[in-house]
Write a protein that binds this DNA or RNA. Structure first.
Lengths: 224, 224
DNA sequence: CTTGACACAGAACAGGCGTTCGAGTATCAT
DNA sequence: ATGATACTCGAACGCCTGTTCTGTGTCAAG
């Protein structure tokens, strides 16, 4: 049989080990031993696990403290147990904004992008957080959505929404954040600011939904 | 010499061990061994460390996986490495709101309160996060501060502020959130919403500051 | 065909590490 | 005094664990 890959990138076993270490760490709050990795990964020899661990370390995917039991850790802040690193794909103003990220990326990657760390407990428990992305609001164009300059909005990819959810929609060639309501024969896009009037769309002109707003984060301290 | 305490509460060594385990975990991403705890805590015998670990476990402060090396972990979500648990002291509307919490509490406590977990990376790096507390906004009374019903505002105790910081102030027997500016002969309290007019106070009537706003968190998903 | 890099297994070694036990000291209520 | 309780120490036992070494099979290059 063929071993599929030779020397470049992550093989199936690399990935399996990486995944297992992360999962184990999340569940037990301490890293697995070499033997535990082997058992759960279908590797019968500790030396082989060690072999892969060495490679993963050279690739920079993990860090090891030799001689120390369970001295393995996933590199990068993205490896956190109870925090989710959400990439900031770019600024958002009134203009069009960047679309969904490459779904191929996962938390293993350590690319050079800005990101926010969000506690998992702040997200819905069922939310795996896979496709989540964030945008940084520039300018005052979203004040009617109660979103300020500098705010960070966390989005979840979606092309449709249920009533009451806040979505990013395109209306008149502009992107805005509005609460979405589908009513009997119309769509109602309600601003977050209760003093403002909703936008009403006829049934025939269904708005283009670009994502649901999961969360808005405003940091006030940076200026100090 | 006397040993100070007998059987009740946390002794000096309990606390020392707890602190060390937490620090070690934070630095190394894996828990310390019994011997390491002993060395750094000034306990020469592993059995003594084990002795205290047993007690801490009975108290519910830690959890142990016996027989597993480094199988110690601090109990509770508050023990997170990179997340800070901030207690929600109560709702805030237009009325007066609860004041600073008992400064004696620390992250070790597992009291029954609502709380939000905030990634440390979202806070200023120097912020230890000791006195931070959070309030849940009820009602629309703060829309001019760009804060909505249901939002969570994270506060830091303060009785004075620097220019540009957002503070909770009492004006005319009402609490509001405003950007604070001390100008040459007056105080200017600027709403976050740029379309709204500031409140001007004479030099003589310095506003009562109840805390700085560190962060605002809005979750949109719960309704779904 | 030989050679060597690569992927893997298994066994053995040595030190790490949790556990247990025997024993000593100090404080306090009886 | 006396025993009970809390606390401390040191050493030894034995499993846990990382490391290392030998060996096997595959595959591509020379």
């Amino acid at each position: 049989m063929m071993m599929v890959r030779k020397s470049k990138g992550l093989g199936e076993r690399h990935q399996k080990i990486l995944d297992f270490v992360l999962t184990y760490q999340r569940e037990n709050r301490y890293p697995p031993s070499i033997r535990e990795i082997g058992e759960k990964t279908g590797i019968t020899s500790t030396s082989v696990v060690n072999y892969y661990l060495d490679q993963l370390e050279k690739m920079g995917k993990i860090e090891r403290d030799r001689k120390i039991s369970r001295g393995v850790r996933i590199s990068g802040a993205s490896a956190s147990i109870d925090t989710l690193r959400i990439p900031i794909l770019g600024p958002i103003a009134a203009g069009p904004f960047m679309l969904v990220p490459d779904p191929g990326i996962n938390y293993m990657n350590d690319k050079e992008y800005d990101a926010v760390d969000v506690a998992r407990s702040l997200l819905p428990s069922k939310e795996k957080g896979d496709g989540l992305y964030a945008l940084e609001v520039k300018g005052d164009s979203m004040i009617d959505a109660m979103v300020n300059d500098g705010d960070i909005v966390v989005m979840k990819p979606a092309i449709e929404a249920r009533n009451g959810e806040m979505v990013a929609v395109r209306v008149n060639d502009e992107y805005t954040l509005k609460y979405f309501y589908k009513e009997k024969d119309r769509y109602r896009l309600q601003p977050a600011n209760p003093t403002m009037e909703p936008i009403i769309l006829k049934k025939s002109e269904q708005p283009e939904i670009n994502g649901k707003v999961v969360m808005v984060i405003r940091r006030l301290d940076r200026a100090s």
